[in-house]
Design a protein around this nucleic acid. Sequence first.
RNA 1: UCCACCGUAGCUCAAUUGGCAGAGCGACCGGCUGUUAACCGGUUGGUUCCUGGUUCGAGUCCAGGCGGUGGAGCCA
Length: 447
Amino acid sequence: MTPVIRIQDAGKYVGQTVTVRGWLQRRTGKGKINFLRVRDGSGIFQAVAFRPNLGDEKFQIVKNLTTESSIVLTGEIRADERAPGVPGGYEMDLQDIQVVQIAEPYPIAPKEHGVEFLLDHRHLWLRSNRQWAIARVRAVVVRAIRDWLDDHGFLNVDTPILTPAAGEGTTTLFEIDYHGTPAYLAQTGQLYNEATIFAFGKVYCFGPTFRAEKSKTRRHLQEFWMVEPEIAFCKLEELLEIEEEFVSYIVQTALERCRAELALLERDTTLLENVRPPFPRITYDEALERINRAAAEGVTVPPHDEPLPALEWGSDFGAPHETYIASLFDKPVFVTHYPTVCKAFYMEPEPGRPEVCRSADLLAPEGYGEIIGGSERMSDPDMLVEAIHKHNLPEDAYDWYVELRRYGSVPHSGFGLGIERTVGWITGISHLREAIAFPRTLGRITP
RNA sequence: UCCACCGUAGCUCAAUUGGCAGAGCGACCGGCUGUUAACCGGUUGGUUCCUGGUUCGAGUCCAGGCGGUGGAGCCA
């Protein structure tokens, strides 16, 4: 028996006869020679079937293979600079072949397809090189997130997905039937994180979250993954330092471990190389001033067609405004101290200036938008109750949340990082639906 | 919820003023020793999204519906 290897390791077996198990992505031929481009999940390479070496009978088997047929290949690995693939540069001189199954005619052709067709065939689309590369970057990003947090004293404490009430009260929730009473799919684990920091100091939750918003854009999904760290004894300034170290580690790890994947995606990584602390910081007031100056000059921010609209103080930034602010910097930028009225009830007001709060959004460059939303949380129980009233939220539902502040309350802060937006930014893809295996978008829940 | 655009072969698209339903790719057959979405020759391919209307005649015009995509607002 020859050793069964994975394609990513082919370079270690040059000159040896090995077996590879996988799927035929494409066959091209030229008379007595056929090239089989094969994928096994770890990488892509080609096996070369040469009739005089292989024999007429086996060569005929090769010629009958269809796209996506499952095959077991045995042959000698050799280095050849003409050999395409990932990592590339190695190919197999085919000596034997076993067919596991001849695939039926495969719907996805090596050509351009429409969005609807690809999404309808998402279960097959995932086999394509682009989707393979994106999925691998995502896995590396997820691992980098966990590694960094685990190595910096954070305890992973996951929060419930079935929840009794609104997390932030403002956005639309998916309602489900919890044995006869209404319950909701979580849109954040933050409030629960604020409970667990009092037991564990520094925590994070990591899981899917759900937003039933009627958002039909390339930056929105109905179901997306989010990591939410929360830190006791931490004020806004310290939070920003944590965030920039954290994000830089994620990006640099992806660059280091996903070179081949990013190359396959043709991602220009110049700007990503820059992503190291410190990140620029700009207050809402400063950002607003620059926006209105640009609006007065009639600036237009691609990809938006309309000129940048001017804003009054107290308005939240729209997508074009975020894109404009991000475009002023070549790194992610923190926008801090938003007006209290734009933000959630639990954010700590700025001392001496209660009309703004100690919040910070992190905007990614290149138009990828807000990848982090974070803030210092309100730590005084009476102020918190007042804020709950002001936002017309049901006080009962937040009893336990307020109670956290009655037993050793401390300044604390936290943030949420969107996985798909982060992966989308690093991979340079144009739509978040490619950053998750089975995207849930407005009006689509299949496959 | 609002605005814009789209729906013709398995896929990507074309079809002039309302006048025979087309091409490329794929698939299938044959040829070729270095292909990278190969190339050459042949074969195959239709509920023109649905319903109704106008007309001698509708893919094309009109009305309604369905489905999809992009964007806004909101957010990560």
